[in-house]
Design a protein around this nucleic acid. Structure first.
Lengths: 199, 199
DNA sequence: GCTTTAATAGTACGACCGTTCGTTTTATTT
DNA sequence: AAATAAAACGAACGGTCGTACTATTAAAGC
């Protein structure tokens, strides 16, 4: 790995931290250069444009999400345990990956949901991937016999995402102490409804 | 009403439209002045600072939300019907109030959830109010005998908010056609679980 | 209609924006 | 060690940012 590659990663690391705090729109060349200890032009040369920088930052955010949330969950047994692990890692992923200030992907989702362009496309791509992979995990739980076979998987994923969003909201904005507890309770209810023989 | 008051409202109207598209951080004096048909300094004089402008914009966003979502719901019968009306208006409120590009309050929530200051305080205040009022509506449904008396109201509100967030996400970012259908199904499930005699 | 006050315009400012360019320093290769 | 390529720098550009002033216009009160 050349030296350029290394600093590029360092830049993106700083970019992720910044985006976690203040969103991707706050990723300015100047402030990021200062944070990364480079000159503006030196940093700029790595990406060629601010937009490319934002796209790259979203890319590593997505990548890190997968590695922090999905990959570890694969170590859990197929089916319900894996789904539970997925959810647990999801709730804690920003902390466990050093992004102390909220999920950058969610920030990007809200920032760009109405601004067509390559940045938005990147965000959409990530979330579609997320939906797909989550659905896959749910389907495995169905195949394993942990969840009922007539389960509406898309609906399950829709509601699961809602729980995570509400968790982020209560934990970060409202600083609610019981956000984790509420999220887990909601998840339990979701699972209970999807389990075989819903009482 | 003096003329100043009138233009001030017009400015905030334009501000809301802009914030709905690109967030509150995109509320710059210059661009907003152009949109409102004023000079930069003429607009600036109405608020004294950009921050005050942002706070004022969040104020009218919250106000409009209450008037579009909560007030009309009061016309529905107390209890479950009112809760259903509340939810329906909530899903459609950005369109029905002319904000064609997403809920500005949610945008503000994500933008400022990690940036202490008066703007954040305003956002937090609104959402606390929202939680409280929604809880009140749920409690009424309990009193009316439509929902079970041992219902965890806070939990109910937590999950309801999650449904709305997931709806926004799928409808706006992913442009999912079935977002409304999914949201309603999730709501139905939430109600069913909270209803008396959960099957 | 005149005076007073409120509302808007105009201009200027320093700071920062993304970007370009030429130069200099640092790595890599031969 | 010399030659070449990669990487970082520093200065500058045109623009826009928020904000501070003063001047000008429109409204309000008498």
């Amino acid at each position: 790995m050349g030296k350029g590659e290394h600093t590029r990663l360092a830049i993106l690391d700083a970019a992720l931290a910044q985006a976690s705090e203040c969103g991707f729109e706050s990723l300015t060349i100047g402030s990021l250069a200062e944070r990364a200890g480079l000159s503006k032009s030196g940093l700029f040369a790595h990406f060629g444009s601010r937009e490319e920088l934002q796209i790259a930052a979203i890319g590593v955010a997505a990548e890190r999400f997968v590695e922090t949330v999905f990959r570890p969950a694969l170590k859990a047994p197929r089916g319900l345990p894996r789904l539970q692990a997925l959810f647990d890692h999801w709730l804690a992923w920003t902390e466990s990956s050093g992004l102390a200030h909220g999920c950058p992907m969610q920030a990007a989702a809200v920032e760009f949901d109405d601004r067509p362009g390559p940045v938005r496309d990147a965000v959409v791509g990530h979330y579609r991937h997320l939906d797909r992979e989550t659905g896959r995990a749910v389907r495995i739980a169905v195949l394993e016999g942990h969840l009922r076979s007539d389960l509406d998987v898309e609906q399950f994923v829709f509601e699961l995402l809602g729980i995570v969003f509400s968790y982020y909201h209560h934990a970060r904005l409202l600083c609610a102490e019981d956000a984790t507890k509420r999220a887990r309770a909601a998840f339990e209810r979701l699972i209970a409804h999807a389990a075989v023989q819903p009482s």
